[in-house]
Nucleic acid binder design. Structure first.
Lengths: 191, 191
DNA sequence: TGCTAGATAGACAAACTGTCTATACAATTC
DNA sequence: GAATTGTATAGACAGTTTGTCTATCTAGCA
């Protein structure tokens, strides 16, 4: 058994497959992601892919979903650790920018997925937005933020902004600077 | 000649092809966009597609580029018509939200394109960002906005926010409300 | 030792691609 | 009116990819 549940250069086979798919998307676009190409890039036989994923879209979906789930866990911890609504929001922004930054453009791939696949990501979207809205709401009640914004809507816009901040990082290569400016924009917006 | 340069139900053949492709993406995702499917959806023979586009990605690229070019023209007019930096920025935001709203998720499809195709869209990205930065810069000098933001970076973030505002419209179906909140977020951010 | 799970290999029909040739038809030109 | 041109259409073609078989190999485990 070469690599059943174990690892090769530190990664699960599943993770290697996902990584190969993401790299292919970045390079050739969604259309360039074929089972054969992923298999080649991941260094496994094409047949092996079918032991893990039924088709190409499942791989991309898994990549996005896994990334989202991981981001959610970290977000929870970061926000919980910060004291006060303002600090929580600032940490949330900084973390979201940093997280979406190192993962490439993964955050904005949703649009290329089928409607069905996109629904499977709704759960994470709702959870994250809820966390943002909660902070905004609590902060507004506390008087820490301005209260003339529709909380749900503001949370939605902030979420989109954070989602695409990763692309900004990719462009400038400077996570810290993007994060700082994003904090200014978001906190300025609610303060 | 059934439909050479003319129109069928008001649309150019080229426009019908692009519309079919966008509808297929929304429904089945990028992977679901095949020449055969587009042809079927657009109501033309598969062969005909090759008279207009060499491959599938070209269709998606054309859709995004055409949308971008059109948006840029309208943006220019809207911004020129508004008096004062603040009004210009407000009009820009309102317009961007409305424009990306009625066109579906078209704005965020870039991530699914190949690196080569994405470069072809850079021109529009730069032009739009320049317009935003110009307004911000002029407004800050005028004292109409706060001046502690990095103009280029703020312009970039605002641009991303506007790009994905279309998705928010799609979710809520309410262009006016999203636009109003987006104006608050953006103007609050620079004011 | 034998059993089992997972990776691999080869084969297969079906679908899609890009290209070719040929035909049909409308508009333009002579 | 006849010839020409531009575009849509139709059928055929080899090559590639897909998803699904069946079968074999190998490492770990009982």
């Amino acid at each position: 058994m070469k690599d059943a549940t174990g690892s090769l250069d530190g990664l699960t086979l599943r993770q290697r497959i996902i990584a190969a798919a993401l790299s292919l998307i970045a390079e050739r676009g969604m259309a360039g992601v074929t089972m054969s190409a992923v298999a080649g890039d991941a260094g496994v036989a094409r047949q092996t892919l079918y032991n893990h994923f039924p088709d190409v879209e499942s791989i991309v979906l898994a990549a996005t979903a896994e990334h989202a789930a991981e981001a959610w866990d970290q977000l929870q911890r970061v926000v919980a650790a910060a004291a006060g609504s303002r600090a929580k929001l600032e940490q949330l922004v900084r973390h979201a920018v940093a997280a979406s930054g190192h993962g490439g453009h993964a955050g904005s791939l949703e649009a290329g997925l089928s409607a069905e696949a996109q629904e499977k990501l709704l759960d994470h979207t709702r959870k994250t937005r809820g966390a943002i809205a909660e902070i905004l709401e609590y902060g507004a009640a506390e008087g820490a933020f301005r209260s003339d914004l529709d909380v749900e809507m503001a949370a939605m816009l902030i979420q989109y902004l954070l989602g695409s901040a990763g692309a900004a990082v990719g462009e400038t290569g400077d996570v810290a600077r993007v994060a700082t400016e994003a904090v200014k924009v978001v906190l300025g917006a609610v303060d």
